[in-house]
Design a protein around this nucleic acid. Structure first.
Lengths: 213, 213
DNA sequence: ATTATATTGGAACATTTGTTCCATGTCAAG
DNA sequence: CTTGACATGGAACAAATGTTCCAATATAAT
């Protein structure tokens, strides 16, 4: 039974939020009192104790402005959890293996966590250069988000480096004995086969993003 | 000429960030000193003045813990501005026009603003159902982000409703006299033509997002 | 009415915290 | 060697800030 906050405590909570938004640090007891029409600091403490009791805030003893907004209150912490920041590493081209060296200036791409599975580690983003991956329904200029890993499960789309022709490509992989079937994502195109030792998985393709003017 | 921060100031800046992440409020001068091996508060002030000079932080005089992280430093404020929230409206199917009624519970998808042009208004997101748009390099299950508008420029990809067959499709449009050429995004497929009055533009396709397991 | 409980104010006090001023050491330039 | 900018420490001090204790008034319960 989560009782509604009465006016005063609610007012205080709102003020703390607003103050933090403006100053980037929490208010002092006297500032809270001044803004909410409370004359005594002990009176402010009185309400702050209630707010802490009910889990709206946390306080650090004897530390000035030591107030933290919890759960229901904090807007930023929320937003941060709903978005994944994926480092952007430049280009993926057919003629060279993927390089995973971070760019100077650490650019990132933010995308809703909801669009990913639970595992959002080891991700990076690349821009596809060239039309050689059209058979994967991927165009020149598309952005692919890849999870770095050295093997994928049957049927998953992977970025692979083929030793023999010496090129990077994106295909669905099916392990069939000591051969690998590389299946274009475009169902109108035919698969081809490579010996397993010729196929180096660079990562699993997790997402493709195409921007259009 | 943006001079690199020397070790100490950089260390202080990092500490302030970390401390704020953990406590939700900024550290005091003595806490900064303690964490960075500086024995005197005046010494901490010395560096803080430098950081303020260079625009990394702002300080409020005589206010305890009155430190704000600016621009380069603040991760949250940064993220909020760099992300666009696009409302998610459900499905787009070949057999029906697009419906732009918001779903209950207002779901949204957040994506880096950097991936869009400057105009991020009137956007909405839909999930493609069915394989009928494969000629636009779009698969069953892909998400498309569309800007609602009733006409597009030549060569832009649009979501259109064709009165005659009675279906929604995604094509690049070229106005040619009183005909419209509907060009599949997949260059291996042939375009076809429709009389202009049969083509109702529902919106411009701004982005395609494909998620893969 | 009387008692208990919640609300509000005041003020003294102890800490925490920022400021200021002075002193010392280092290191490169003149 | 002297000078001066930079880096560092110390301590005294003033201001800001949280705590604590006491008192007064309301408001509700008995």
């Amino acid at each position: 039974m989560k009782a509604e906050l009465k006016q005063k405590p609610q007012q205080i909570l709102d003020f703390i939020k607003a103050y933090r938004d403006e100053h980037d640090y929490p208010p002092s007891l006297r500032e809270i009192g001044g803004a909410t029409g409370i004359a005594s600091t002990s009176h402010v403490t009185y309400y702050l104790d209630q707010l802490e009791e009910k889990g709206y805030i946390a306080r650090d003893n004897r530390i000035s402005r030591g107030i933290q907004l919890l759960g229901a209150a904090e807007p930023f912490a929320h937003a941060a959890e709903e978005v994944v920041s994926v480092p952007y590493l430049g280009y993926i081209v057919a003629s060279a293996p993927i390089s995973v060296e971070p760019l100077p200036g650490d650019e990132t791409v933010e995308i809703s966590r909801a669009l990913f599975g639970r595992d959002t580690s080891d991700l990076f983003a690349l821009t596809v250069q060239g039309n050689s991956m059209i058979d994967a329904l991927i165009n020149d200029g598309d952005m692919v988000i890849i999870r770095q890993q050295e093997r994928v499960e049957n049927g998953q789309m992977a970025a692979v480096w083929l030793d023999d022709p010496g090129e990077t490509t994106l295909k669905k992989l099916y392990y069939e004995g000591n051969q690998v079937r590389l299946q274009p994502a475009n169902p109108t195109m035919e698969p081809f086969y490579e010996p397993a030792e010729n196929v180096r998985v660079q990562g699993k393709v997790v997402m493709v993003i195409r921007q259009m003017g």
